[in-house]
Design a protein around this nucleic acid. Sequence first.
DNA 1: GAAAAGTATCTCACTGCTAAGAGATTGGCT
DNA 2: AGCCAATCTCTTAGCAGTGAGATACTTTTC
Lengths: 165, 165
Amino acid sequence: MTDHVDLVLEQWGAERPDLDVSPMAVIGRLKRLSRLIDAETRRTFGAHGLDPASFDVLATLRRSGPPYRLTPAALMRAAMVTSGAITQRLDRLEARGLVTRTPSESDGRVVHVALTDEGGALLDRVLPDHLATESRLLAALGKTDQDALADTLRNVLESLGDTRE
Amino acid sequence: MTDHVDLVLEQWGAERPDLDVSPMAVIGRLKRLSRLIDAETRRTFGAHGLDPASFDVLATLRRSGPPYRLTPAALMRAAMVTSGAITQRLDRLEARGLVTRTPSESDGRVVHVALTDEGGALLDRVLPDHLATESRLLAALGKTDQDALADTLRNVLESLGDTRE
DNA sequence: GAAAAGTATCTCACTGCTAAGAGATTGGCT
DNA sequence: AGCCAATCTCTTAGCAGTGAGATACTTTTC
């Protein structure tokens, strides 16, 4: 069977046979799959009145465990976005009462972002649906393939410096 | 070794041991890797005065072969973006003289987008650098692993309906 | 051959991100 | 103690995308 990227590779092979375009077989597919995943998960979040960015913040707080509180800097690193993006995400979530911002007592530069009961409850409602969507997206692969895929991706991420924290 | 997603999985395991979060091992990594790839390739394009969106259009035209001409609708499908995004990309590229827009003679609804000599020359300058960047991003994997990864990703893409055209 | 359905492109309001930098605070160094 | 570099959060301008829909043209159906 062949997918869109196979067509792309054939086209390059015909037009630029002098170049080795084999990295595109992986990177091109990662990009396309990423877009598909994004579109699908966006629908799931939308059904609960959320967008991927808001879900990401709520989930990061939720999985950090009690007291469900992190700094904007920690959220920024977890989400791989700029500080400006986090400020805006928090503005939206705070306006909806899903998180609170409190100045730190020990460090005047720092703010503590905490999940409200409402925010936590909303996340717990969305999470099972989200996991079902993710699972459906990977349904074509058996458990062994999924594990192998995760391992391979971890190797690449580690080589690029994506470590814990 | 462990990466950021391993930490995420551990956290969910502690906070919500009732849920099966294993799909995140794959999907979470795809998302993070995609962001890293995007940031890196953006730098390569930037060195040539391009952005990923512009490169994408130029490359799609270039690999389509002579006469290096496609419709906005074809570009839209290849890039997986909305028609509005393509219109804006073409506005920018046309203003820089990298593509031309000509109304179709056989179908009044259709426009032909063609690569100019300048656009083709620019793409041919960027492409080797871009391939080098992609290759570097995957340097941690051997050829066998890369092939296996490409195969697995193709399986998933096909299962989601990502076919040739 | 006229009406209805479909297709292609573009427009526009809105959203969310980045890049650059400002302002405030902290901690290490001398 | 005092200074300087580093850190943290927020601000702002600008950019690129989406979603909904307008417009124009073509094809199908009766």
